[in-house]
Amino acid sequence: MTTEAGQTAQTVQALSPRRVTWLRRRDAAVRSWKSFARHRIGVAGLVVLVLFALMAVFAPLLANSNGLEVTKATGPVMGAPSSHYWLGTDESGRSVLTLLIWGSRVSLFVGLFATLISVVIGTLIGISSGHFGGRIGGLLFRLTEWFLVIPFLPLALVLASLLGASLVNIAFVIGITSWPGTALLIRSQTLSIEARPYMERARVLGAGNWHQMTRHVLPNVMPMVFANTTLTVAGAILAETTLSFLGLGDPTRVSWGTMLDSAFSNGAMSLGAWWYLIPPGVCVVLVVLSFTVVGQALEEIFNPRLRQR
């Protein structure tokens, strides 16, 4: 700590302000990474996530995409795991392992895309409702509260059924139904930052709303946004799985949720086809759990109040 501060002090004379800011940010990032690395469960979650991400990216190398086509399937119907089909086959003779590998792409894509939508809306509304007091802020806060009481699953079901099933629509539905939580969190963070003296200084010096929000509030709420994002991804992947299970997934794509849907509707349970039921669920739990523990580790780092837990 002291040496880092010393270095920064030395470089102040020699370097431009921009460079100083950059160095300070780099120091902060290194410090955050070090405290994250001390969090063993968080690191374990990160490792699992990296493995799943690699699986999704390198899906074409791991499993031939021909294995996804029902017409080209050659395996037995609901066949048990064998040396050829490590995780057995589904109702049309496709390898469950191939479906699992390709399904990771859809589940992760929808999860991340939905989170992007949700976090952008949540952060925008959260910061604006915290920054602008009075009528605009109050109205935005009310709007957030209203959306918060709409039950997520029924609204998502209705929207998905009205918009039609496609990957982008599913992500859109999850995104616009899950932002209020983020917005409330960001709003309360913004309110606490708005009360700090440097905000008053910025206002006195004539900073406009845009400058205040982007240069002072946003950098300070960013860590919380980041921690919240990881938790939102977990929720979005769960939501995608649930919507697909209820038959609202994209029928042309395989995801872990649609796999469980076809396992359920094709009677995998009464046929005793555990290889079709267990693996997709385990993948969902692993990914969601990893996002959750990484998110919690980040929250602990960025929110000192939680540090003693």
Partner: peptide, 11 residues
């Protein structure tokens, strides 16, 4: 908490 409740139900 990370498990879809319906998957637990299926199991």
């Amino acid at each position: 908490y990370s498990m879809p409740e319906w998957w637990l139900g299926l199991i």
